[in-house]
Amino acid sequence: MAEKVKEYESDELTVIWKPEKCIHSEICFKGLSDVFNPNERPWVNVNGAEDKTIKDQIDKCPSGALSYKLKNESSDGSSIEDEQIVEVSKGGPLMVYGNIKVKHHDGSETSKHRVTAFCRCGSSSNKPYCDGSHKKIDFE
């Protein structure tokens, strides 16, 4: 089955949302509610802020469900520096910032860019990645 992808376009910017990846951290909404408002339809208003402000907020998305592309640029999303940062979020996933390669138990590899959320609670149905299950089980 193909992954669901929704795009929201302005003159210069396309915001891309992959709902199945979203862990509902609400970082987008709490950080930039003029653009990201789940109570509105469509929930993404690309005209609610300057492109740079929107891009900066999207870069904070812990699951990678939100990304963007500029209409006058082509990018594979791998422009982050070589540095990786690991952050343990309180009651939530292990956040890894930067370009990484995930080696799976079957020997396959997946390249991840910008932000990757790894499950710490053990309840994710998308292991090793977080799917937001920690909220349902009150993981601490």
Rank of each mutant, 00 (worst) to 15 (best):
S79I: 07
S67N: 11
G98R: 09
G122A: 00
E26D: 15
E40Y: 01
S67W: 05
I85C: 13
E9K: 08
S10C: 13
L94I: 12
S79W: 06
C22F: 06
Y8E: 00
V35D: 00
K52T: 11
C28T: 04
V96I: 08
H113F: 13
F29I: 02
S111R: 08
D106H: 06
T110V: 14
K136N: 03
C61S: 05
I23Y: 09
W43L: 04
G92C: 12
S25V: 03
H105G: 10
I27G: 11
E109N: 09
K103T: 13
E83I: 08
C22Q: 12
A65P: 06
G31V: 03
G77W: 04
N99Q: 10
C119Y: 09
H104Q: 12
E7A: 09
P93T: 04
E83R: 15
N99A: 08
K71C: 02
I23G: 12
S133V: 12
D131N: 09
R120Q: 00
K60D: 14
W43S: 00
D34C: 00
N45D: 12
Q84W: 14
G98C: 01
S89L: 12
G122M: 05
A49I: 11
P19C: 06
K52E: 13
V88F: 15
D131I: 12
E109Y: 02
D76C: 08
H134S: 04
C121I: 06
L66N: 06
E140N: 04
L32S: 05
D82H: 15
V96F: 00
E3N: 15
R41K: 13
K90C: 03
S125M: 10
P19W: 01
H105D: 13
S74H: 11
G92K: 13
L32A: 02
S133I: 07
Y8S: 05
G48S: 01
D51F: 01
G31F: 02
E9H: 09
Y129T: 00
N99K: 12
G122Y: 10
E26A: 11
A2G: 14
V35W: 05
N99W: 07
G122R: 08
V35F: 07
S25K: 08
V35L: 02
K18Q: 11
I58G: 08
D138C: 06
Y68F: 05
L70G: 06
E9C: 08
D11H: 10
H104T: 09
V102L: 01
H113E: 07
V5Q: 07
D76M: 14
T53F: 00
V96A: 04
E9T: 15
F139T: 00
K30W: 01
V96R: 07
R41P: 01
K136F: 12
S78L: 04
F118A: 02
D11T: 14
K60M: 14
T14W: 04
K6L: 14
